[in-house]
Structure formats: C-alpha cells, structure tokens
C-alpha cells in the first residue's frame, strides 16, 4: 500500500518537475564551481536579486508574461548589476562585499518600486513577486525543461570551449594576465554564464534561494577532490541529486514548498561531505590527529628509553 502511494506520486507532472530540477541543479552546480573557487559565492545572490527590475521593465515594455521575455529582462538587469559591481570595485576603494550589498539591495528596491507601479495599474496579468522570490517548482512545464536544457547546455558548451582560459583565470589571475589573456573579457564571459544559470533557476527556486544552488553543490564537491574537472562533475551530480530528492520529498507531504526543500537537500549533501569526505573531511582529520598523537607518544617514549640503555 505504501509503495503504491509513492508510485502514484511519481506521476508525469512530478517527473517533469524532477527532471527540470535535476537539470537546473546540474547546470548551477557546474557553473557555481567557478564562483566558489573565485570566492564569489555571493555573486549569485546579487545577480538573482538584481534581476527583479529587469523582469518588471520587460513586463512594462511588452505587457507579456511570456517566460522567455521575462528571462531576457532578468538576464540583462542581472548582467548590468554585475558590471556595476565590477566597476565600483575597480574605480573606488569600496570593497567587493559592500559593492555587492549595495547593488543587490538597491536594484531589488528599484524592482519593488516598479512592481508596485505595475500593481497600481491593476493589470490582472501581473507577474507575482512571491514567485520571483521563492520560485514555483510545481509549475515547471515540459517547455521549461526544454529551455533549461538548451540554454544550460549552451552555457556549458561555451564553458568547455574556454576551459583552459577560465581555468587559469580562476586559479592564477596574474599569471593569466601575463600570458596575454584578456582578463576583463573572460571575467565578463564567466559572469554572463553565471547570469544564464541564475535566471534559469529563478522560476524554480526563486531569487532568495538561487545562491544556495550555485554554492552548495560546489562546496560539497570541493571536499572530495583537488581536480577542477572532477569537482565540476561531482558538483553537477550533487546539484542534480539535490534537485531530484528535494522534488520527491516535497511532493510526498502536503504543503512543503519545493525550492526550500531542494536547498535543504543540497545543504545536507554539504554537511555529509564536510564530515565524511576522505582526506579533507572532519572525521578523517580527527583520525589523523589521533594517529599523530599516538605516533608522537610512541616516539617520545622511545627517545626517553634510549639514554637509559646507553648508561647500562
């Protein structure tokens, strides 16, 4: 009986949502790897919040709620926000964190202003703010899965084409510059790829939680390996895993929103990785510590014994 109820839950709609969430997790896990390694984990948070005015302006200009148009608006605003962050850091002594905070909150505030403006015009066709903030994974359709697949695929292909350039940019920016790589152009390329991943995820998990989708899988993957390619592959797997398990858990009980559940699943993966990953993990570290203590004790006692033997 129990099995049967789970089977009926795994219906077509759920499958579509799960596939969408898995694809999304894989794409954001892959591209989030760069953000985490460059210590720009919170850039995703900024981009996703900065996207709101773009959505509102796209809606005000076209009057349509077609996902593609709103996504383009979101992408442009998120991209402009990131450029603003980069130029504030370059031209003033204001640091990364403050620049990020200002752009994130004020872009969002401007979006809120536009949103209330739309509401006031009484347009019944308005875009819901709750959806923007928390996403509505349950409304993922076949066409959305296709969009996520195609755009995410394009982003990953571009990333693979520039693999070597991006790799050297991430690990040694100064070296990349000395080799004559166009650092700023590569920086903007990488940011643009992140923007794509983020606006794809806005519908499913929303702005507030999108940053976790970029950060968590990559942080978890980092614990298991020191190789970029392996880390990226693992991050994609972890992201997909979080997407699928979050979807299934949230559908198995009533009134558990999908987006937050996916984020919590990703957090559990991170916790597990930090605790149990070989070499780096906390448990491993504890064992190594104990063994070292033991070895040191043995060595010390051996050293103490030696002079006694000499005096005999």
């Amino acid at each position: 009986m129990e099995n049967l109820s789970i089977l009926t839950h795994l219906d077509y709609t759920l499958m579509i949502v799960a596939i969408g969430a898995a694809l999304l997790g894989a794409v954001s896990g892959t591209l989030g790897t760069y953000a985490v390694l460059r210590r720009q984990s919170l850039l995703g948070d900024a981009i996703s919040h900065a996207a709101l005015p773009g959505i509102a302006i796209a809606f005000l200009l076209t009057g349509s709620k077609t996902p593609l148009i709103l996504v383009i608006g979101a992408a442009i605003a998120g991209w402009l926000g990131t450029l603003l962050i980069l130029s504030i850091i370059r031209l003033t002594r204001i640091k990364y964190d403050s620049a990020l905070g200002i752009v994130l909150s004020t872009f969002f505030g401007f979006g809120l202003v536009l949103h209330t403006l739309i509401q006031r015009t009484g347009n019944a066709n308005q875009a819901g703010l709750d959806t923007f903030l928390f996403g509505q994974a349950a409304t993922i359709l076949e066409s959305d899965v296709l969009t996520i697949g195609i755009l995410g695929g394009i982003a990953i292909v571009i990333m693979l084409v520039f693999w070597k350039e991006l790799k050297v940019l991430v690990f040694d920016e100064g070296f990349a510059a000395s080799l004559g790589f166009p650092i700023r152009a590569l920086d903007i390329l990488l940011t643009s790829l992140l923007v794509i991943a983020i606006v794809l995820g806005l519908q499913a998990v929303g702005a507030v939680l999108m940053s976790a989708m970029l950060v968590a899988p990559a942080v978890a993957a980092r614990q298991w390996t020191n190789k970029l390619s392996v880390m990226m592959f693992l991050a994609a797997c972890f992201g997909a895993l979080a997407g699928v398990s979050g979807t299934i858990i949230s559908s198995s009980a009533s009134r558990i929103p999908t987006g937050p559940t996916i984020v919590l699943c990703a957090t559990v993966v991170v916790g597990f990785s930090i605790a149990f990953a070989p070499n780096r993990g906390l448990l491993w570290d504890w064992f190594r510590h104990q063994r070292n203590k033991h070895n040191l004790k043995m060595t010390a006692s051996n050293l103490l014994k030696q002079p006694q033997r000499g005096s005999e």
Partner: peptide, 17 residues
C-alpha cells in the same frame, strides 16, 4: 574547508529555507 563567502552563502539560504 569552506571560505568565508561560501560559508555565508551556505548558512543563510538553509536557515531561510
């Protein structure tokens, strides 16, 4: 095991969720 920015990016979405 986790840098500061990633630590922030992990903690608050989880609590918020």
């Amino acid at each position: 095991l986790v840098k500061e920015d990633a630590a922030i990016g992990l903690t608050f979405p989880a609590l918020f969720s």
